[in-house]
Nucleic acid binder design. Structure first.
Lengths: 229, 229
DNA sequence: AATCAACAGATTTTCGCAAATCTTGTGTTC
DNA sequence: GAACACAAGATTTGCGAAAATCTGTTGATT
């Protein structure tokens, strides 16, 4: 069978990562070993390994002898992260437009199509389909820059994505932020420019896309949803 | 006392990191727990934590149920890493030139001076002074970009530095590669342009500096020193 | 001769307990 | 009443042993 047995440490890492990203743990919340052991039914050692990895990835913070906490969120970090994403990904897109072959074009077309389908299908209240939507969204953006030819750029893009997805997940379920933008049109325009090998237009559209996203998330972050008191 | 007690895991991480960077372990060499336990006199848990962190940083690789190895080196990775450094650090330098205050200028002057002193003092065969030289070199380059205002760019620069220093350490002790370049002149010119707030010149000199370094290290990498058989 | 199964040794991974450290609450002193 | 010392509980950290997995060798079968 194709089922590769993952170590408990990897499983713990994946589960914790997913729960932090999806907001099941609040920012700055302490992550107690005993609590996690009960929640996941896993011993100290694998949990510690998972937390150490997450700390290196920037999703949790660690203070000596005081354990681990979920990494904080801030407007400043959001702005910085999105600006840096725009800077790095426009370069990776530029290179991909120069170097991309038929397979690269196919990945863009295919991931855009899949994103559109999931977009139609998603209703705001199903957290399951929201996770699927986020996955499609990620796939599309990765496809765009997937012919850069630089392993290092890919790694950087990946880590910046992880740093930004926590800001997006809660606002994805917020209906109010969506109507102002036609997200599919934005993505379609970027894909079109990339496939037309128009470096200048494609990178400008991508940067603008991230700028709009940063603005929208900043508002959502400044006024967290759900608090009606 | 100002001495903060570090956890054994942190100590193990620092020691292993230093030994990998300085070449005490060969690339791709397996890192056996029992062997490391004997070498450092530290138990399994802290060693595992250290190795997990190093894996997340890219200095070691890990395969499930097969343990850890020192991460491989390659000409391709060297080229990619140095190109990416040039790309990211020129941007950070550009921003620093725009935003840098008196303290930033002071850090550049001071770290350049310290680098020059250590450069005069260093003789090729003292590995201790070579480590100090590398430290000064790092400090100078970090000072250059220390006013970028972007935490994310700083993190990226840091991780790329770690990825590249392993290529430089062995060649630092190779006398033959040094005479072709006047390293202090290069560094001095970069600092001068930065302090003169000349974005174009400073970033061009910095990029050229990294291009020359990449070329030099590529040659050293292709023909490892010491093998006279 | 080549392939495969099984066994033995080495290695990684996981667990539970002991030690070290931090936190909280209580009582005493000024 | 406020500040401090101290003790009890909670929590992290570290260690060694046990379990799970891999690797290399030997011997049997086709």
């Amino acid at each position: 069978m194709g089922k590769t047995t993952k170590s408990l440490g990897e499983q713990a890492h994946a589960m914790l990562r997913h729960q932090i990203i999806s907001g099941a743990f609040a920012p700055e919340q302490p992550l107690r070993l005993a609590q996690l052991q009960e929640r996941f039914g896993i011993g100290f050692s694998p949990l510690r390994e998972a937390l150490t990895r997450l700390a290196a990835e920037g999703l949790v913070t660690s203070e000596p002898m005081r354990g681990f906490r979920v990494a904080p969120l801030s407007l400043e970090d959001l702005r910085d992260t999105m600006e840096t994403r725009a800077f790095v990904e426009t370069e990776a897109l530029r290179r991909s437009i120069r170097r991309g072959d038929d397979d690269w074009e196919a990945r863009i077309v295919s991931s855009l199509h899949a994103l559109g389908r999931q977009f139609e299908r998603s209703t705001p209240d199903q957290s399951e389909s929201l996770a699927a939507l986020e996955e499609r969204h990620r796939d599309f953006h990765f496809a765009l820059v997937s012919a850069s030819g630089s392993r290092r750029l890919e790694q950087i893009i990946d880590s910046l994505y992880v740093g930004s997805v926590r800001y997006r997940m809660p606002s994805l379920s917020n209906r109010q932020s969506a109507p102002a933008r036609d997200l599919m049109a934005e993505h379609g325009a970027i894909a079109e420019a990339a496939l037309a090998r128009d470096e200048v237009l494609a990178t400008r559209l991508l940067a603008e896309h991230y700028r709009l996203t940063a603005d929208m998330l900043s508002k959502a972050q400044a006024m967290p949803l759900g608090r009606t008191g």
